[in-house]
């Protein structure tokens, strides 16, 4: 009871206490990563492409902020590079979103 308050560690500890398993934080993080990969596999099989994430967007959502303290700011100037980077670094093809086999296995 003397440990400092913590977020994720207490969740993994509770998980281990319930299941009797001995997961490390990395193993728990891997399960989350697999969930993201499954999501990509699901979409890829049905015609989704990562390109839709920046191409199929209502234009108003990417317009510069119309007024106030953030006036003029928009994510648009970093697109699509930001999305390419997100997919590339999380183990997926930047245009299709298809997971690369070598990053992590899912089954």
């Amino acid at each position: 009871m003397n440990q400092k308050p913590d977020g994720l560690n207490s969740i993994v500890d509770a998980f281990n206490a319930i299941t009797g398993w001995n997961f490390t934080m990395d193993q728990a993080l891997d399960a989350g990563q697999r969930s993201i990969i499954l999501q990509s596999v699901f979409g890829t099989q049905r015609g989704w492409l990562a390109d839709f994430d920046w191409q199929d967007v209502g234009p108003r959502f990417l317009e510069p902020i119309p007024d106030g303290k953030y006036k003029g700011f928009t994510i648009a100037k970093w697109l699509p590079d930001l999305i390419f980077e997100y997919y590339r670094l999380s183990g997926r093809h930047e245009r299709t979103g298809r997971p690369f086999k070598k990053k992590r296995s899912i089954s």
Binding site: M1, Q3, P5, D6, G7, N9, S10, I11, D13, A14, N16, A17, I18, T19, G20
Partner: peptide, 17 residues
């Protein structure tokens, strides 16, 4: 659950966050 004492401890630490 397998380990009640550990679960109670983890729950308490989580609660504090």
């Amino acid at each position: 659950f397998r380990d009640k004492a550990k679960l109670v401890d983890a729950g308490w630490r989580w609660h504090q966050t």
